[in-house]
């Protein structure tokens, strides 16, 4: 039994917003795989919850008129991975969320919950950063959309005000059209683990597939919130596909990432792994774009 103060079950997005305004101290519970664990630990013991889990209107994946991909915030990880639209257009996102925890967690965990708790290790987050995703927030004054880089404020804190609900994540057409991506999760186990470091790469190659036209790379656990490796991105932009580019890219990562020492891993370890996985992820992304490299 959970130490829940009061449980308010929202019947619609509007009702959820009303409930959150009425009970400003209440926490939103989506799939609960994070909130309930913290409640049991005692961190959230006794708090009021507004449950949005049953709001099916916030589930599902669609392609909008401008060819953006809209993912309802309550869509579970497993539904994202096995969705046709994702498989055909955003394979890397399906791949990333297919590495969260284990199968049961991927059935309950939602992409909205994964991003709203503001943790740097979220497996979806680095890929969403690498895709320049937009976050749709519905609040008492209506719907607004902000870039994911503005959504994350600091560790555990995101740009949600009282009464706000994150209702969707939108991947603009230009972010994925012509790009090929790869997500490399580095963890201590091959399942049921959180990232020690996560790296997501998106690349667009020249028509003859010899030059990297554009690259976007994002890391999880390389700083307090997910981050883009802008220096490394710049260095490989317009660079030829060869070993030297990969090495430059890997070395440049160190100028962008800022992991910390913790009992889970030292900074030195994370920096070394950061370099190694950035290189691997870039090569894999390029391979996916149809170029043979040695990895």
């Amino acid at each position: 039994m959970y130490d829940i103060g009061n449980l308010y079950e929202a019947t619609s997005i509007k009702n959820a917003i009303d409930l959150l305004c009425e009970h400003p101290k209440a926490h939103i519970i989506a799939g609960g795989s994070d909130v309930l664990v913290q409640m049991r630990e005692g961190k959230l013991a006794g708090v009021d919850l507004v449950s949005i889990y049953k709001l099916d209107e916030m589930r599902g994946i669609t392609i909008t008129d401008d060819k953006s991909i809209r993912i309802g915030s309550l869509t579970s990880f497993s539904h994202i991975t096995h969705n046709k639209i994702i498989e055909e257009n955003l394979y890397v996102l399906g791949e990333a969320v297919d590495q969260v925890g284990g199968p049961q967690v991927r059935n309950i965990g939602t992409i909205g919950g994964n991003t709203c708790n503001g943790v740097t290790s979220a497996d979806s987050a680095s890929t969403l950063f690498a895709l320049d995703a937009m976050i749709e927030i519905t609040g008492k004054n209506g719907v607004r959309t902000i870039p994911i880089s503005e959504f994350y404020i600091s560790a555990g804190k995101v740009a949600l005000e009282v009464g706000d609900v994150q209702t969707a994540i939108i991947i603009p057409h230009k972010s994925y059209d012509g790009y090929s991506g790869y997500y490399l999760k580095y963890a201590m186990r091959n399942a049921m683990d959180i990232s020690t470091l996560g790296c997501s790469v998106n690349v667009k190659l020249s028509a003859d597939k010899t030059i990297i036209e554009d690259a976007r790379i994002a890391f999880g656990v390389a700083g307090p919130i997910p981050l883009r490796a802008k220096t490394a991105e710049k260095r490989v932009k317009s660079a030829p596909i060869n070993e030297q580019t990969f090495d430059t890219f890997a070395e440049s990562i160190l100028e962008d990432i800022n992991p910390r020492d913790s009992w889970r891993a030292t900074k030195a370890f994370r920096c070394h792994i950061g370099k190694s996985i950035a290189k691997r992820a870039l090569e894999k992304a390029i391979q996916r774009a149809g170029v043979e490299t040695h990895v």
Partner: peptide, 16 residues
């Protein structure tokens, strides 16, 4: 103890 749970204590999973 820092890792008193089955997430942080790395017991081999089915994939390990």
């Amino acid at each position: 103890v820092l890792n008193d749970n089955l997430l942080d204590y790395k017991l081999a999973t089915f994939m390990d």
